[in-house]
Amino acid sequence: MLIEILTNGSRLHRPEIIEQLSAMPPHKVTVSLYGASAESFDSLTRKPGAFKLLTKGLKAAKEENVPLELALIVTKHNAHEVQAMREIADEYATTYTEYANISPTYDGNSQPLAAQAPGFLDKSSVFKGCPAGHTFFHVDPHGFATMCKVGRERPIGLMTEGLDGLLRLPAIADAQMLRSGGCSGCQLSAKCRVCRPLAKAYQEAKAPLNTYCQHDNGDETA
């Protein structure tokens, strides 16, 4: 089992955390980077001093050889710092990935979509299925397992069911991959780039169709 820790890095500088990560290193620690300066980083996270804490954490992790990957979150507020963000990643991490396509929040709020930087939005490849729930899964801080970070329906409580509960996860994942709702009968599904759980998140947030769908030519029929 390969364990990946996703974090904003705000507590990564703490000695007890670095000691734990050094003693029992995970497969990798993925840290979100929201800018290359305190001005952009703190503004986006809405937490003064967040960039300073992140920098301390990255330095501490590098010194102890903690395997780091940076997730560069590109928005219209920090797009001018992308190159500087890449340089930070090159200095502290073994690898990095850039994310410009922002999804709605889990509670159905589409507000984050307005922060996207149009010039950095990419068109992913055609979606041909996903092993989520079969070869990997997501566990939140409360011990609830789901197929992934997006598909969170019917969570399995590992604290009450134990690892045997994971045996139900493949069927739960398969059910969430079925085209339904606004995607039922869509003639463009064969070349769709978006997985069903993510499309559902966009639909529930009432996001503009062109933010997640191939119907960006003005044809909104499904």
Rank of each mutant, 00 (worst) to 15 (best):
T45Y: 00
T45Q: 06
R46T: 06
R46E: 13
P48H: 05
P48G: 08
P48S: 12
P48R: 14
G49C: 10
A50F: 04
F51M: 05
K52F: 06
L53N: 13
L54S: 14
L54Q: 13
K56F: 01
K56W: 04
G57M: 08
L58Y: 05
K59W: 01
A60M: 12
A61M: 03
A61V: 04
A61F: 03
A61E: 05
A61Q: 04
K62H: 00
K62S: 00
E64V: 00
N65Q: 11
N65P: 01
P67V: 02
P67F: 07
L68K: 05
L68Y: 02
L72N: 02
L72C: 09
L72W: 00
V74G: 08
V74C: 12
K76P: 01
K76Y: 02
H77D: 03
N78I: 09
N78C: 10
A79V: 08
H80R: 14
E81S: 09
Q83V: 02
Q83G: 00
A84R: 09
A84I: 00
M85Q: 04
R86W: 10
R86A: 08
I88Y: 08
D90S: 15
E91R: 13
Y92F: 15
T94G: 15
Y96F: 15
Y96K: 03
T97D: 04
Y99V: 10
N101Y: 01
I102L: 15
S103V: 11
S103E: 15
S103W: 14
P104F: 05
T105M: 06
T105L: 12
Y106D: 14
D107I: 01
G108F: 13
S110L: 02
S110D: 08
S110W: 01
S110R: 09
S110K: 06
P112L: 01
P112K: 01
A115Y: 05
Q116Y: 06
A117C: 09
P118A: 14
G119Q: 10
F120Y: 15
D122G: 07
S124W: 09
S124I: 05
S125A: 14
V126N: 07
F127C: 15
F127H: 15
G129E: 01
C130M: 03
P131E: 12
A132M: 08
A132D: 09
A132K: 07
G133A: 07
H134E: 10
H134V: 07
H134Q: 09
T135L: 14
F136R: 08
H138G: 00
H138P: 00
V139Q: 06
V139S: 04
D140S: 06
D140M: 03
D140N: 15
P141L: 05
G143E: 06
A145T: 00
T146C: 14
T146D: 07
M147H: 03
C148K: 12
V150L: 04
V150G: 00
E153Q: 15
R154P: 01
R154K: 15
P155L: 10
P155M: 06
P155H: 07
G157Q: 05
G157I: 00
T160A: 12
T160D: 06
T160E: 11
E161S: 11
G162I: 10
D164F: 03
D164K: 14
D164I: 11
L166A: 11
P170Y: 14
A171T: 07
A171K: 10
